[in-house]
Design a binder for these strands. Structure first.
Lengths: 125, 125
DNA sequence: CTATTTTTGATAACGTGTTATCATTATCAG
DNA sequence: CTGATAATGATAACACGTTATCAAAAATAG
């Protein structure tokens, strides 16, 4: 990642502007506004480069290909809309009494929460 | 699923005995004790049949192929050991104030929690 | 501006997990 | 017990997301 290309700028910008994790195809689509003709290979290449540079981070959800979001956010969880399948960011609200729920001898290093439901945009319809 | 084969019995038994979600290969391995010569195709076939019959249910974790567990358990979450990569069942301890964390207009239908860490067996070593 | 070298886009190839195929074996109704 | 047929095991084929290949285009140093 040594040259500053319009494609990479578009991809970076799309991920920052989204405010929610995007999958590779969502990145492609969102970036094509700024970078016409952008190809999927370039998206994957740049996602990998931006991950290595820690500008973005990977968000894995059960049973789905990875999504990516701007790096450096505070601890948060995600909401996945059952209708449009978009994933949103959830601030605050974390786990309370994890320790009590654990079998003896188990040690926690991290956790993740995924909330399913219908987002505001879809509920409106 | 009309005939009662030793293979299907072995698979059912392995999933019940495990007490934790097993992946397809774990099912294969665990079942081969009771059903020598068992093949992976039969495992996949029977997993599908048992799912349809609602005897087992699918457990999806981020970035991993599905696991399966006996159906009909109470609401619970899972713990994945970073070392041995086994997944355990966690009883109790559920989310508190989900509603407050949601953006306006979002509706929750369900949620899932995954705890990462080291299991008792691995911590001992 | 030019030469060098990275990056790109199209697409073939890949890896992993799962499903289809098909000849053989096992179950079970009669 | 026997015939009909469902189920099995080996393995080829598939699906999907991702990576590799390579000629052409674009970025940067000088």
């Amino acid at each position: 990642m040594q040259r500053d290309t319009s494609q990479r700028r578009a991809i970076r910008r799309a991920l920052e502007a989204a405010g929610r994790p995007l999958g590779a195809l969502e990145v492609l689509e969102a970036s094509q506004a700024d970078a016409p003709g952008l190809g999927i290979a370039t998206v994957y290449r740049n996602i990998k480069a931006l991950l290595k540079a820690k500008e973005i981070s990977e968000v894995q959800l059960p049973g789905e290909p990875p999504r990516y979001e701007a790096a450096g956010k505070d601890h948060h969880h995600h909401f996945r809309c059952d209708r449009c399948e978009k994933v949103y960011e959830l601030g605050g609200a974390c786990l309370p009494d994890l320790k009590n729920a654990l079998p003896r001898g188990f040690k926690v290093s991290s956790h993740e929460v995924l909330v399913h439901g219908v987002c505001a945009a879809c509920a409106r319809k």
